[in-house]
């Protein structure tokens, strides 16, 4: 049996060597994986919103792009990853409903994608592949033995990024 680690919305998990880290049903949320291919340590965050709210107490760190990435890196380091080797992959950030007559006031998906990219850039973590945006839901699987990320949708064939 392959060890499967599930990541729920606004949560993050890390693993090592083998097994799969999975998050299901990404809509406007962004799934981000960070992987160190030397140590085979990797992790995934299911990010809901771009930024940790100023002044909020007891907020979940894994919910926001900035704090989720910071926490994920810390946990990967604890698990034995060399943070200099980390490579990122990203999926999600979709616009599921198309309200044709509504202004583009809050495209949460786009904002999550942008925020995640910015933070990775500032931390000098290369984003090596992504499957983001558009209008469909995604399930994301990180295979810890290879670092491959499998993207499943209900409308299209599975792809590996």
């Amino acid at each position: 049996m392959v060890n499967k680690i599930r990541v729920r919305m606004a949560d993050l998990k890390v693993g090592r060597d083998d097994g799969i880290i999975i998050t299901s049903g990404l809509g406007s949320c962004v799934g981000l994986t960070l992987y160190d291919s030397n140590s085979k340590v990797g992790g995934m965050a299911h990010i809901m919103l771009p930024e940790f709210p100023v002044g909020k107490k007891n907020a979940k760190l894994a919910k926001y792009a900035d704090t989720a990435i910071e926490t994920l890196i810390k946990k990967l380091r604890d698990k034995g990853a060399n943070t200099k080797n980390l490579e990122a992959k990203m999926a999600g950030g979709a616009q599921m409903f198309n309200f044709s007559n509504i202004d583009n006031r809050i495209r949460i998906g786009d904002r999550n994608i942008e925020a995640t990219k910015e933070i990775l850039k500032s931390l000098k973590i290369p984003l090596i592949n992504s499957e983001v945006g558009k209008n469909y839901g995604r399930t994301m699987e990180l295979h810890l033995n290879s670092g491959d990320v499998l993207i499943k949708t209900v409308k299209y064939d599975d792809i590996v990024i």
Binding site: C29, A94, M96, F97, S100, Y136, V154
Partner: peptide, 20 residues
Amino acid sequence: DVPALAYDMAGAILQVAFME
């Protein structure tokens, strides 16, 4: 207001509907 339709994964739809 005008409705919008999606035919997709339940989790993704619910998450987005509540967040939107």
